[in-house]
Each structure stands twice: as C-alpha cells, then as structure tokens.
C-alpha cells in the first residue's frame, strides 16, 4: 500500500469540512439576493441588501456593541490573565499552583446558559448583589437592566468566564522562561515586579497573541449569555443575535449579509492566527 493512500484517512473529516465551506458559500450566494419569506420571488439584487443593512442604525449599534464587547474582553481578560498567571507563577507550592489555576479556569467548563442564569440572578434587582449594595449604603445599579450599564455588566460575566483561559497561556509562557535567567535576576536582587516586567512579560509574546486570538473569537461568537439572560433586547443585542433575529423573522438574505460580515471579521482575526499556528506546528 502506498503511503499517498493516507489521504483516505482525511476524507471523513474533509466531508464535514466541505459541508461547512458549502454553508459559507451558501451565505455568500444569498447575501446578493433579496430572499425573505415575505417576498414572492428570489431575485439577484447585487449589493443592494448589503447597502440596506449597512444603512440600518440597529445593525451599526449591534456591531459596535459586539466590537466594544470584544475589545473589553480583550483588555480585561488579558490584564487579569497576566495578574493571575504572575500570582500563581510566584507561588512555591506546586499543588497550590494547580489548585489556583483550576479555580480561575473552571468557569470555562460550565455551560454558558447556566452561567447566564446564575449571573442573571446575581444581577437581579433587590434580591441579588444589589441587596448587599443597598445595605452597605452603596449606590444602586440596574446592571443588565439599563442601557448604559448592560454592556459593562455583561463584560464582567465574560471576564469571569474567560480570564482563566488567558491566565493558563501566560502561565505556560512564564514557565517556559529558563530558570537560570530568573535566578540570575534574583542574584541581582531584582524583585518579583521587576522580574515580571523585564523577563517574564517580554517572553510572553506568543501567549499574548494566542490568548488574544481566542478571546476575540469567543467574543465575536457571543450569543448565549445575552440571549439567555435578557432575550432579544436592544440593550444587549450582539451581531450574531441580530442575525438570528433576521433569520427568526424570515429575512434570509439579510441574515446572510450579516453572516458574511461577521465571517469576514472573524477571518481577519483567524487567518493570521492560523498561519502563526501553522508555522509553529511545522517547525515543531
């Protein structure tokens, strides 16, 4: 048997990959039509549907919310990731290191719909965290109930979910730094902050790229948390929710246009990451 025949091994996976590719092309095709359940005939309209969508203020507001959410996650989770990773890195006890890593990572193992329920109640007026605030005499918040506080409140939830993810990448990067260079810094009586700034962080570029790519991709996908916590709600709607809404009401061409826009944004992030990953993978 010739080894070229090993291509047979990839066929099952390729079939599923092809289906996914077909979905994307399907979207692309119908994004140039006016297809909806209310229309009578499907017509090719070129970029007309794109124009229509891009002119809608609710599209712009959901897209900017999605991008703001993504940016917020990117900043907060990376910052907390570095904080957690360095706090854990400077622990001496191996067991404690493992325990704390798991403690910051476990939210990732919980279904986002369960996460949404838990936080929805934590944020609930009068019964939730507000109860404590009120009794401490602190100002009262409406959390996800108000237009201005909804996004920050949601970012707190995703921060809780995803910071541990960033932390383990940074921790892995820190642990790859040669112990000699850390020890020699200690001999030069450098404190932990200096070691972090001068030695550990400069060596963490890969961790930054990887965790940022994953954080951005997870944020772009954000559907379940706002959907379960608030339903379709103009204060919390993201792009993927927006497209779901179009689909729900039978505006298929409009949904396809939003899909293509989201895919393009995702691919701009994924391709550099994928190429970066491939380079490491091949040189490994």
């Amino acid at each position: 048997m010739k080894f070229q025949k090993s291509i047979i091994f990839s066929i099952p996976a390729l079939i599923f990959g092809a289906v996914l590719l077909y979905f994307l092309l399907w979207n692309l095709y119908f994004s140039f039509t006016n297809w909806s359940t209310s229309g009578l005939v499907i017509k090719f309209v070129g970029l007309q549907t794109y124009g229509k969508i891009l002119a809608r203020s609710d599209f712009i507001s959901t897209l900017s919310r999605t991008l703001l959410w993504t940016l917020g996650n990117f900043l907060v989770c990376n910052a907390l990731g570095v904080l957690f990773a360095s706090l854990i890195f400077f622990l001496k006890n191996q067991r404690l290191k493992t325990i704390y890593s798991s403690l910051f990572l476990y939210p990732l193992a919980i279904a986002l719909s369960a996460v949404a329920i838990i936080w929805d109640w934590i944020y609930s007026k009068s019964e939730g965290i507000d109860y404590i605030f009120r009794h401490l005499g602190l100002p009262s918040f409406s959390w996800i109930g108000s237009a201005s506080q909804a996004l920050p409140s949601l970012i707190i939830i995703t921060m809780w979910v995803y910071s541990g993810l960033a932390a383990i990448f940074y921790l892995a990067a820190f642990q790859n730094v040669s112990s000699e260079s850390i020890e020699s810094a200690k001999l030069d009586s450098a404190g932990p902050f200096r070691i972090l700034r001068k030695i550990l962080l400069p060596e963490s570029k890969n961790a930054f790229i990887v965790s940022s790519a994953l954080l951005i991709i997870f944020s772009l996908r954000t559907f379940t948390i706002p959907y379960v916590a608030t339903g379709i709600n103009p204060n919390t709607e993201t792009s993927v929710l927006y497209l779901f809404n179009f689909f729900d009401y039978g505006y298929y061409a409009d949904a396809a246009v939003v899909s293509i826009i989201v895919v393009v944004i995702a691919i701009v992030v994924v391709i550099p990451y994928a190429l970066f990953g491939i380079k490491r993978w091949i040189s490994a």
Binding site: L21, L24, N27, V240, A255, A266, I267, I271
Partner: peptide
C-alpha cells in the same frame, strides 16, 4: 487544508444557522 480546518474551528458557527 490545515488553514481551512483552523478557520472551521474558530468560525462563529452562528453564521451557518440558515444553511444548516
């Protein structure tokens, strides 16, 4: 193919809802 697989892994799968 590897790039395609990486994209497939990370694509916001919500976008494929309708054709799916």
């Amino acid at each position: 193919i590897f790039t395609i697989i990486a994209i497939a892994t990370f694509i916001p799968y919500e976008v494929t809802a309708v054709p799916l």
